[in-house]
């Protein structure tokens, strides 16, 4: 008898948890969204290929081969070779490693900084809020490109190139996230459950971390997913103009910079089309996933 009730309880527990937690509901909705799921699969495949590139390809991507420059696609070089005789297919996959890493890492940093600053400003309010928001305005009004170029030049050589760029981008991009998180926290903290949490003795840290952040998490996640697309574009454009990732590291942006040569742009599309498509599809997919998440977290949408 005892066993039976326990089992029933356990079953009911699982059923009620998987059916009704806000996260479970969102997950269900997300899985039903075909476009988002296709995009997510594409992103996962691309990431997997990029991560595994060194293991599946047997090519030295840094080796310059002057005997085989600017070759069109062939069975030996699927996407042809670039003006230094390097295999474009291999470089596209390797470039994905760098571009996706920068996108992901700077998104994480930006979200972390933005969330902390936004949450503190929104919850504490008063002078601290004023100070943090002025700081945010300051960061937001900074001339981004100029500052990235300067910082990058100062820091280069001290930290590995890719991480320098991640740091620089993160330090300059958290403003938007901080503002969004702050406004969400401001709205959310008016709810009585926050008062209730304080009235049972929760410390401010606990109120923010345990009660406020989970309730604004959906916004943060959506914001972060869309931010990642922006970060990949930022990396590409900076590398394209030559101030991003060091030239010897392949990234999609770096590969694109070859197209600055008009001969390459007009006559050798195999050199710049692959990274270009990689960027386009990645960003599209990220945006679709972001939109999917937005819908999934929105209790009013029934899509």
């Amino acid at each position: 008898m005892e066993v039976v009730t326990n089992k029933n309880d356990a079953e009911r527990k699982i059923a009620s948890q998987s059916n009704h937690s806000p996260w479970a509901l969102a997950r269900k909705k997300f899985i039903r969204n075909k476009l988002a799921m296709v995009s997510l699969s594409f992103l996962m495949l691309l990431s997997l290929l990029s991560i595994l590139a060194p293991y599946i390809l047997n090519v030295d991507i840094a080796r310059v081969d002057f005997l085989n420059i600017n070759l069109p696609p062939s069975s030996e070089h699927w996407f042809g070779t670039d003006s230094n005789g390097r295999d474009v297919f291999a470089r596209t996959l390797y470039g994905g490693r760098v571009s996706l890493l920068i996108g992901l890492a700077s998104t994480l940093c930006v979200t972390l900084i933005g969330t902390i600053i936004g949450a503190i400003a929104g919850y504490v309010g008063g002078k601290i809020d004023q100070f943090l928001m002025r700081l945010t305005d300051f960061v937001l009004t900074f001339p981004f490109t100029v500052f990235v170029v300067v910082l990058n030049t100062i820091l280069i050589g001290k930290v590995s190139g890719v991480w320098t760029l991640i740091m620089v981008i993160s330090l300059l991009s958290w403003g938007g996230t901080a503002r969004i998180v702050r406004s969400k926290i401001l709205a959310e903290k008016e709810n009585e459950y926050i008062l209730a949490a304080i009235s049972v003795g929760c410390s401010p840290f606990k109120v923010i971390a345990k009660h406020l952040l989970p309730n604004v998490a959906s916004t943060i996640i959506v914001q972060a997913s869309l931010l990642m697309a922006v970060m990949i574009v930022v990396e590409s454009s900076l590398s394209f103009i030559g101030f991003g990732v060091p030239a010897d590291t392949p990234s999609w942006g770096n590969m694109l910079s070859e197209a600055r040569n008009s001969d390459v742009l007009q006559n050798k599309p195999w050199i710049w089309v692959p990274p270009c498509l990689a960027i386009t599809f990645t960003i599209l997919s990220i945006n679709f996933v972001g939109e999917g998440l937005k819908d999934a977290f929105n209790p009013k949408s029934n899509r």
């Binding site: 948890q17 937690s21 806000p22 996260w23 709810n191 009585e192 459950y193 008062l195 209730a196 949490a197 304080i198 009235s199 049972v200 003795g201 929760c202 009660h211 989970p214 309730n215 998490a217």
Partner: peptide
């Protein structure tokens, strides 16, 4: 607060955190 004295609020609809059991 919560140990020696506690409080109940007016709006039961919003006084529980929606994301926790």
């Amino acid at each position: 607060r919560g140990k020696e004295m506690a409080m109940i609020f007016q709006e039961p609809m919003t006084s529980l955190n929606p994301v926790f059991t």
